[in-house]
């Protein structure tokens, strides 16, 4: 991709998406600033995951998926002609709701991405694996057993391994789809801390079901309801003084 001028790392304009004839997202416009955490909130089924997976074009895997509108990543329309989906996914990392380490060693889990993109030098890979694990706050726990299978780690460690794996190709943007919802509270708070740390170097878009969590870690927040972007502003503003009654209902726990 070229180095176009851009103000926000990701800008979404009038984005609508369909699965078959079912319209999931409805004319969404928002933007994500460099080095910020944006929380995407909303009740189950409102399209949070769909939105996230539209940003890295993972929805392209679903044959019935269609989309309209513009998503700009670093100034370039990712759905535009000639845009490389592989290049895009390399530069937008993703962490999933359920930890999904590959059935291979911890080392290979992390080396997978860089190897895919042509890095074969053993020393560099070693350094990269160490660096990624450190960034994901997992290095101290696993440094002596890098050849152990990733799926043998505990749930929280697995999720941090997945974060390390996403960071291994050094993407400027990290998408996280309810990364702690399947974890115990202690592992969850560790990952929350990690998200705050990672903000220094990455733009993070975090889907969450949990209002408190959004309040603790995010700078901006978006509230989705039935595929509609109801509110999009500073997190503090939205949570302290919701402008829409649906947002208020969600925050106070009446819907969701």
């Amino acid at each position: 991709m070229s180095t176009q001028e851009y103000t926000n790392v990701i800008e979404v304009e009038n984005l609508s998406t369909w699965f078959g004839s079912c319209k999931i997202l409805k004319e969404i416009s928002c933007y994500f600033e460099d080095n910020s955490v944006t929380a995407i909130m909303g009740p189950s089924g409102c399209g949070k995951s769909t939105f996230l997976r539209t940003l890295n074009r993972l929805n392209d895997l679903v044959p019935s998926f269609r989309q309209k509108g513009i998503v700009r990543f670093m100034g370039e329309n990712i759905y535009g002609q000639g845009a490389s989906v592989y290049d895009l996914r390399k530069r937008i990392g993703m962490v999933f709701q359920k930890p999904n380490p590959f059935p291979m060693s911890i080392y290979d889990n992390i080396a997978y991405g860089p190897k895919l993109h042509g890095l074969n030098d053993k020393d560099e890979l070693d350094k990269l694996v160490e660096g990624s694990l450190k960034k994901a706050a997992l290095w101290d726990e696993v440094k002596d057993e890098l050849d152990k299978p990733g799926p043998n780690l505990s749930g929280g460690q697995q999720q941090r391994l997945c974060i390390a794996r996403a960071l291994s190709v050094n993407p400027p943007v990290l998408l996280m789809d309810e990364p702690v919802s399947s974890l115990d509270p202690i592992s969850a708070s560790k990952i929350e801390e990690l998200i705050t740390d990672l903000k220094k170097d990455y733009t993070i878009i975090l889907v969450t079901h949990n209002v408190q969590q959004a309040f603790r870690v995010s700078d901006q927040a978006a509230f989705l309801y039935l595929g509609e972007l109801v509110e999009f502003d500073r997190t503090k503003r939205i949570l302290e003084a919701p402008a829409d009654e649906r947002t208020e209902a969600f925050i106070t726990g009446r819907i969701g």
């Binding site: 290049d87 390399k90 990392g93 999933f96 999904n100 590959f102 997978y112 190709v169």
Partner: peptide, 12 residues
């Protein structure tokens, strides 16, 4: 979800 993790890293 293993396939998705791989695609999300830019794999073909």
């Amino acid at each position: 979800n293993l396939r998705e993790a791989s695609y999300a890293l830019g794999a073909t």
